[in-house]
């Protein structure tokens, strides 16, 4: 299977502080990759270094066989991105934001179809800032899907979504994945990771403490539930200290 995302030994520090240590991943076409870790573990930094919005100190990245900085124009025709704090203008409406985003791409999806699919069609004339948290989150996923991407980056995919909306989003993403979409996501919901991700990587203070499948993560831990295993990986040190 084709390797869509390749990051090799990415390093990044802010001053003295090392925030990403030798981050290495490979994501194959049509699979979903989950990047996990506590707040401040370096997930967003990793995504930003991969996308080129932050410059890694060293290491190599290729997405769809292209360099995110030198092939920016060509690469980002095919990449959808949902940032953690989504950025939009004051007073802009849902329809205006979608139309503007769609105008940036040579071949964009019809925003109305996506708004309908994500149940926010009726909000198209509302200002974005008046949407509820969950509606806004769904809008940001819509924006990430507008380019008809081959690969999509979702930073904290389902934050703010209620249980039903979350399941619906998972369903849509799973079916897109079956059609060949490659997904790179970060999440704090272990249920979501189990439902969507083929491979995961757990970060702790910028270091990769686990890399493999969800079931491997459970097997290599003393626990039977993924959430407990995850906590064991991220809090190992504290447990050791308390013993």
């Amino acid at each position: 299977m084709q390797e869509i995302i390749k990051a090799k030994k990415l390093m990044k520090s802010y001053g003295e502080q090392l925030v990403m240590d030798s981050f290495t991943v490979t994501v194959r076409r049509g699979t979903a990759f989950g990047l996990l870790g506590a707040n401040g573990a370096g997930k967003s930094t990793a995504i930003e270094c991969m996308l080129g919005t932050k410059k890694a100190d060293s290491g190599e990245v290729s997405i769809l066989g292209m360099n995110p900085i030198s092939d920016r124009k060509k690469l980002f025709e095919k990449v959808g991105i949902q940032f953690q704090e989504m950025n939009y203008q004051d007073n802009i409406t849902v329809a205006e934001l979608c139309e503007t985003v769609a105008s940036l791409y040579k071949a964009a999806a019809e925003p109305l179809d996506l708004l309908y699919q994500f149940d926010i069609m009726d909000k198209q004339n509302s200002p974005v800032k008046e949407l509820s948290g969950g509606q806004r989150q769904r809008l940001f996923i819509v924006l990430a899907l507008i380019p008809v991407p081959e690969v999509i980056f979702l930073d904290e995919l389902s934050t703010g979504l209620d249980a039903a909306a979350r399941r619906k989003v998972w369903k849509i993403l799973s079916s897109l994945k079956e059609k060949g979409l490659t997904i790179f996501l970060t999440s704090h919901f272990m249920e979501e990771v189990e439902a969507l991700c083929d491979d995961i990587c757990i970060l702790k203070k910028g270091k990769t403490v686990f890399h493999g499948t969800v079931s491997e993560a459970i097997q290599s831990s003393p626990y039977e539930k993924f959430e407990e295993a995850y906590l064991w990986y991220t809090e190992e040190e504290r447990i050791d200290e308390s013993i």
Binding site: G52, K73, F76, N87, Q89, Y105
Partner: peptide, 18 residues
């Protein structure tokens, strides 16, 4: 400065548009 602080300028860096 408003568009910079909101990250709108940054957002355009990950689109095909300059």
């Amino acid at each position: 400065s408003d568009y910079r602080s909101k990250g709108i300028l940054k957002r355009y860096q990950v689109t095909p548009v300059n």
